[in-house]
Amino acid sequence: MKPSRLLRLGLGALSALTLSACQSLAFGVANHGLARPDASAVYDPAHQLSLDVYRPAAAVRNAPVLVYFYGGSWQHGARAHYRFVGRRLASTGAVVMVADYRLAPETIFPGFVEDGARAVAWARAHAADYGADPARVFIGGHSAGAQIAALLGTDAHYLADQGVPRSAIAGVIGLAGPYDFRISGELTEVFGPPERWPQAQPIGFVDGDEPPFLLVSGRRDTEVEPRQTRDLADRLRAAGGRVEVLWLPGGHLAPLIDLYAHHRHPALLARIRDFLRGP
């Protein structure tokens, strides 16, 4: 199949990701021809949770580590679907670890955030095994995964419970993330009793001691309002934090589509690369 034809198929499939019946096809097309992960490891034996490791094609001295959490409304997803994300992000020179976490109804909030903290602790402890620098650990994710990443970056107790000080995190990358969101409908099953809901909002924990943030959103996102990206950025700046914002044309899946077809809007991958390199 011609590359241009495959690209068109991939873009169309990724655009249909919100339709569950199309997901297997979409991910199959997006991952077509890509090498399998360079390694896989169980980071939480108690819950049989694993992560996949993607290394840069060329050795990078003191490479950063990026722990990535996928989206899926905290109810769907699997690390195997995100080979195209792992490979693309590894092209920035980072060692990328795409981590599974428990999904509802197997667990409810804050179980999946606690899983995320364990993945980050494992990545920090094992970074050197993959040629990466344990002092340069970044956290990122898309949609629900961005909420997990942002909460780990703002509410210090999750990482502290795993022996990781928040100061050990070099930065957080949030792609189309919910940071101050309304919990209703099926999400009430995911986030438990109402008195717990404020604890799920990353914006509520900004206190000025956060790592740098890179926030990315599609201007036409109708699933997670772009104002959530803007509001979190404003709160971080008001607290004296360092934050960068990148707006993409497109909707909720724009960051994933632009990672798959990075030549469409090369600013995304370039901004991520620069952010991982540090100031």
Results as ranks from 00 to 15, higher is better:
155 D>C: 06
167 S>N: 02
153 G>P: 07
150 A>M: 02
137 V>P: 12
159 L>R: 00
118 R>L: 03
116 G>K: 14
144 A>P: 09
103 L>W: 05
120 V>H: 07
137 V>L: 11
107 T>G: 04
168 A>K: 04
103 L>A: 02
131 G>C: 13
140 G>T: 14
165 P>H: 00
146 A>I: 12
165 P>T: 03
108 I>R: 13
145 G>W: 12
124 R>V: 07
148 I>Q: 03
115 D>E: 06
113 V>Y: 05
106 E>K: 15
163 G>V: 09
144 A>Q: 07
131 G>Y: 08
114 E>H: 10
138 F>K: 05
123 A>W: 09
167 S>V: 01
163 G>C: 11
127 A>H: 08
117 A>Y: 05
162 Q>T: 01
130 Y>C: 00
117 A>S: 10
105 P>M: 11
138 F>P: 10
121 A>R: 13
120 V>T: 04
153 G>M: 12
142 H>C: 09
144 A>H: 14
155 D>E: 10
110 P>Y: 07
124 R>Y: 08
162 Q>Y: 08
109 F>I: 02
147 Q>N: 15
114 E>N: 03
110 P>A: 10
155 D>W: 08
133 D>F: 08
100 D>Q: 03
155 D>M: 05
102 R>N: 01
155 D>A: 11
138 F>D: 09
132 A>T: 10
121 A>T: 02
138 F>T: 06
125 A>F: 08
128 A>E: 11
108 I>S: 07
135 A>N: 07
103 L>S: 01
125 A>Q: 15
157 H>I: 06
151 L>G: 03
128 A>D: 11
125 A>M: 08
164 V>E: 01
112 F>Q: 04
159 L>F: 05
118 R>F: 01
169 I>W: 00
153 G>R: 01
148 I>H: 04
139 I>E: 03
134 P>Y: 11
167 S>R: 12
109 F>W: 10
139 I>Y: 04
163 G>D: 07
106 E>W: 10
117 A>T: 05
166 R>D: 04
106 E>Q: 15
140 G>C: 13
109 F>C: 01
169 I>V: 15
166 R>T: 01
140 G>E: 15
124 R>W: 09
123 A>T: 04
116 G>V: 03
169 I>Y: 06
157 H>R: 13
108 I>F: 05
166 R>K: 02
131 G>M: 12
101 Y>H: 13
138 F>G: 05
167 S>A: 15
125 A>S: 14
109 F>G: 04
151 L>H: 07
169 I>M: 09
115 D>W: 06
123 A>S: 12
